[in-house]
Design a protein around this nucleic acid. Sequence first.
RNA 1: GGCCCCGUAGCCAAGUGGUAAGGCGAGCGCCUGCAAAGCGCUUAUGCGGCGGUUCGAAUCCGCCCGGGGCCUCCA
Length: 483
Amino acid sequence: MTLRLYNTLTRSLDEFRPIREGRVGVYACGPTVYRPPHIGNFRTFLFNDLLHRYLEWKGYAVTFVMNLTDVEDKIIAEAAARDLHIGDVTAPVTAAFEADLRTLDIRPVDVHPRATEHIDAMVSLVGRLLENGHAYEKGGTVYFDISSFPQYGRLARIEAQDVRAGAGLAARAGGIDADEYEKGDARDFALWKAARDDDRRAGAAWPTPWGEGRPGWHIECSAMSMQVLGETFDIHTGGEDLVFPHHEDEIAQSEGATGQPFAHYWLHVKHLLVDGEKMSKSKRNDYTIAQLLELGHQPSAVRYLLLSAQYRKELNFSFDGLGAARTSLQRLLDFERRLADAPTRADAPLSALPRLATRMLTEFEAALDDDLNTPAALAALFNFVREANAELDRDQPLDQGAIGAARSALQRADDALGVLALARMESQAVDDEFGSWVEQRIEARRLARESRDFATADRIRDELKQRGVVLEDTPRGVRWRRG
RNA sequence: GGCCCCGUAGCCAAGUGGUAAGGCGAGCGCCUGCAAAGCGCUUAUGCGGCGGUUCGAAUCCGCCCGGGGCCUCCA
């Protein structure tokens, strides 16, 4: 089975072929740490995590890189306004971001480069471009010369001459060159920006052969990706908004410097909508993970919801959807526990369970092989849950091996999705004192039921329910969970 | 103006030429002391609308309606 990915470069579903057999290098554009990322950002980061997990699931040795942009116009503006060093602005945001990654159980990446720690690599890359004629310097600022790179526009399918002809640009003519620098051509973009007073005050100015300055927006990704993954690597990802200009410019810089192809596959994640609308600060629908937790939502539900649509399709975030995600996940958790508790017998008759488990994994893999089609993968999983539950409903003890096959298939599927593991951690986060209180009440109810005092039994059940505990009477005793 | 997506049941969401996955919700039934969980059945003669191509279209083509994105702030 081979993985196929939609490649923005070719605008088609391409079979994934790594440069080096069995190994994959991925570079993901990470956040700019000037304010805590919102759930829209996390749709992209969760997609990266899915890609990361699934490549390993398929047996590849993966080197996954995600950068942290910690020097940039907004960061500098913020630092200058508050008379701080840029590090004072980015440190708390970075810490919050990393906490969110852990909250959502996003797997740590192999390399997490920060722009400010790789200035040398950027300066030398800019130097190469100046030497080979793809860049020019004006007043300490270095621009990439688009006219020197005929392939410019290939990724975004933009004709170079259209770059300045767009109505959108005309509409914001006043702000077209907010950088206040002089370009030789309006279409050229800054590789390196000459330092201003604010930059120096905020600690965002570094010495170079052409004077003090700071990196342009795009150069860090070119420098850091090539430094870790080599001049040509397999996959580059990011949000759909980055196609142009960010990724287009990365290609121009990188290929202009090396003469080699940059990334083979470009994957872009569609932006998240909230309640059917674009997220925006003014609408106050740009929720952060921390805000959702404060509202009492579970990270596993957020993770499930953001993975439940295919990454290139529109996904609408809503609180109703979050609730539905929660319930769906509970069904998976209940199934997992049911398997764990299922009675077994050595000489049990043959069960359909292993066959169902194998079929599920086959369908599951086929779905994710098809450009990470998570909804189809979840459908395979839920079909398995239903069929296996029906099998378990027969109340016959099953062979240990059959149960084991079902359990490991479920685990295998979740290795890629990571939703069950997260939900499991949450449900285990119950303190002992509360747990023993619940056990006491359950025992009291058991005695009441034994003497057929159902009124008392039901009162205890209601009492527990008010504390968020749901009881299930099973043939093998009472089970409880958080409701 | 240029480039590009999308419109499938009450909600979410697969399917992109062969006769509508899955989840949530709702209804009925089985099970249960009653529940919960689970299972079974039901919930889109139809996939924004109108034409066209085809033996056959949610899937291809055209037009129209509606929504969204990018065009140097953006995941």
